[in-house]
Computed example of a mutant assay.
Amino acid sequence: MITRRKEPFRYSMQEPVECQLELTTVNRMSLSGKLIPAQVIDISKNGCKIRSALDLKASEHFIECRIHLRLNEQQFIFPGQIRWQRNLDGFSHDYGIHLLLTEDEKEQINVQLRGLAAERKIIVM
């Protein structure tokens, strides 16, 4: 399990936010991305935790993905890598995603997250 909790803020959603997970490569083999329903549990400019019913066995595979997410009525597609998986109850799985964003994309996400925090839709951790 690899974590990077050095960023100054992580935002926890008051209610999980619906998103879609698109797998782009597994073990360096390209996939045609089918969108998988998921929920964002928390997010920062460097990563997020999502929940899905799909068991990807992430500890056994190198998985690159895209997160399709709407924040403040703006649609985003964030590229990332799955860093860890935690099985919750046999039906749900949490995933840690390291987001691979440019500095401009990081600033965009910060602006959106600050707006959601002002509306009390997310909690700053």
Rank of each mutant, 00 (worst) to 15 (best):
I41G: 00
Y11Q: 03
Q112L: 03
P8G: 03
K106V: 01
N46A: 07
G96M: 03
C19R: 03
N27G: 11
I67S: 00
E119H: 09
H61W: 08
V40C: 06
I82D: 00
Q74E: 11
I109K: 00
K106P: 04
K121W: 12
R5A: 11
D104P: 02
T25N: 05
S59A: 13
Q39F: 12
I123E: 06
S59T: 13
N27S: 15
L99D: 01
H68C: 08
D42Q: 13
E18S: 02
R83T: 02
E103M: 08
H61G: 08
T3S: 03
G33D: 10
T102L: 02
A58M: 13
I123T: 12
S12R: 05
E7A: 04
R10W: 05
Q112N: 08
L88Q: 11
I82H: 02
F78T: 02
M125Y: 12
L88C: 05
K45G: 01
V40R: 00
L31G: 02
E119W: 10
R86P: 01
I109W: 03
I77D: 06
I77T: 14
I97N: 00
F76L: 06
T25W: 04
H93N: 11
R70C: 10
I36M: 10
I109N: 00
N110E: 15
L23Y: 03
R5H: 11
F78D: 01
A118C: 12
R51K: 14
G115D: 08
D104M: 11
E18V: 14
L56Q: 00
K45R: 12
P37I: 15
K45M: 11
V124G: 04
E64M: 13
M125W: 07
E64H: 03
M125F: 13
N27M: 09
G47K: 00
Q81R: 10
K121T: 05
R4Y: 14
Q75S: 07
M1A: 09
E107H: 06
R120E: 08
F76A: 05
P8Q: 14
F62A: 08
Q75M: 14
A58C: 08
I50P: 01
P37A: 09
R114C: 07
P37E: 13
K57E: 15
F9R: 04
E103I: 11
F91G: 04
S92Y: 15
G33S: 06
H68P: 03
N46I: 07
E15C: 03
S30G: 10
A53K: 15
A118T: 10
L23R: 04
S59M: 04
P37G: 09
N87Y: 06
I67L: 08
V26N: 02
A117S: 14
S32V: 09
Q75L: 12
M1W: 10
K57M: 08
D42Y: 05
Q112T: 08
E7S: 11
D55A: 03
F9K: 00
R83D: 05
R5N: 06
V26L: 13
D42G: 01
K49R: 14
